[in-house]
Simulated scan of single mutants.
Amino acid sequence: MKKIIVPVDFSEHSNYALEAASILAKKYNAEILALHMLEISETILTKGETALQDETVFFIKLAEKKFNEFLEQDFLEGINVTPIVKHFKVFSEVNDVAKEQNADMIVMGSHGSSGLKEIFVGSNTEKVVRHADIPVLVIKNKPTTLSFDNVVFASDFTEKSVTPYLNATKLFKTLGSKLHLLYVNTPGDNFNSSQEIEQTVADFLTKADGDLSQLDNVKYVADYTVEKGVLNFANVSGADAIAIATHGRTGFTHFLSGSISEDIANHSSLPVITFKIK
């Protein structure tokens, strides 16, 4: 891991993301690219060329000043931090910066859920996740520590999850993580017998890895919903993070049914890492 992008809007949660990135940067000697999206309003865009240039320069200079203040934090000491200001209007373009910079990961802060209101879905974080080709680490709390010793990768073990699985395996091998593969069996139309599940997983691993060497790392749990199964397993297994697959066209993939991945990302107190289905 050499480069980590942190989209910054100078909020408390982007500060959490920056601190999380600093922990990773120190551990893996990586560079942090602090990215501020200068969202220019339609009012400014409709002005004359000279006025547009003058006002754009003003806002860029203001953002650069905020960067200097925002990046004066003790946890960034000794880390190579590069501030980047882009006058983009949409967060999907974070992926363009990731490609330009050959970044390895995006770290973003998110409010998650508050009571019955789901804030994560439809937020800027979700927009970045939807378009990002590289893994996105979602942080919702101040990271006192950040470890990836034990990571739960939840999957339905269908063909579309092969690429996210391979990308997750590659990343977590680099991070020295123990990857726990998880299948959650639920009642109703999605219920499968033990034999059916074992065959599905065996076919998946054969296609993805070419062998069944990871079969012993697959855990099977039964619960009322996939979300509950994943969160409960992560809790009892002492997981440090949860990994899930996402679909670029529709945001989080519904890897069995319903808004499963959105629910996990919203309600998990653990960091969530997303991998895009391609």
Rank of each mutant, 00 (worst) to 15 (best):
Lys61Pro: 07
Lys127Arg: 15
Pro187Phe: 05
Ile84Gln: 07
Leu212Lys: 02
Asn15Lys: 15
Val151Pro: 01
Lys117Glu: 15
Ala34Asp: 05
Phe275Glu: 06
Asp74Tyr: 07
Ile244Phe: 00
Glu55Asn: 00
Ser22Arg: 10
Lys3Trp: 07
Glu100Pro: 01
Thr125Leu: 08
Ser41Pro: 03
Phe59Met: 04
Ile84His: 06
Asp223Tyr: 05
Phe120Cys: 11
Val129Pro: 06
Glu227Gly: 07
Ala51Pro: 00
Ala98Asn: 03
Val184Leu: 03
Phe275Trp: 09
Thr225Ala: 03
Asp104Thr: 11
Thr169Lys: 14
Ser147Gly: 13
Lys2Tyr: 12
Asn235Leu: 10
Glu31Tyr: 11
Phe67Gly: 08
Leu18Met: 09
Thr274Ile: 08
Asp156Met: 03
Asp104Ser: 11
Ser11Asn: 14
Met108Val: 15
Asn95Tyr: 01
Val121Leu: 15
Ile4Lys: 06
Phe120His: 12
Val201Ala: 12
Phe157Ser: 07
Leu24Arg: 12
Ala132Leu: 08
Ala234Leu: 01
Lys117Asn: 15
Gly238Ser: 07
Ser261Met: 06
Glu118Cys: 13
Val136Glu: 09
Thr253Arg: 02
Leu270Gly: 06
Ile264Leu: 03
Ser11Lys: 13
Ile139Cys: 10
Val236Gly: 01
Ile32Ser: 07
Ala34Lys: 06
Ala63Leu: 05
Glu198Asp: 15
Phe255Glu: 01
Leu76Asp: 10
Thr144Gly: 00
Asn192Ser: 14
Thr56Leu: 05
Lys89His: 08
Val151Phe: 00
Ser41Arg: 02
Lys228Pro: 02
Ser261Glu: 08
Ile277Pro: 04
Val272Pro: 02
Pro143Ala: 09
Gly238Asp: 05
Val129Gln: 06
Gly109Phe: 04
Thr274Pro: 06
Leu179Arg: 03
Asp203Cys: 12
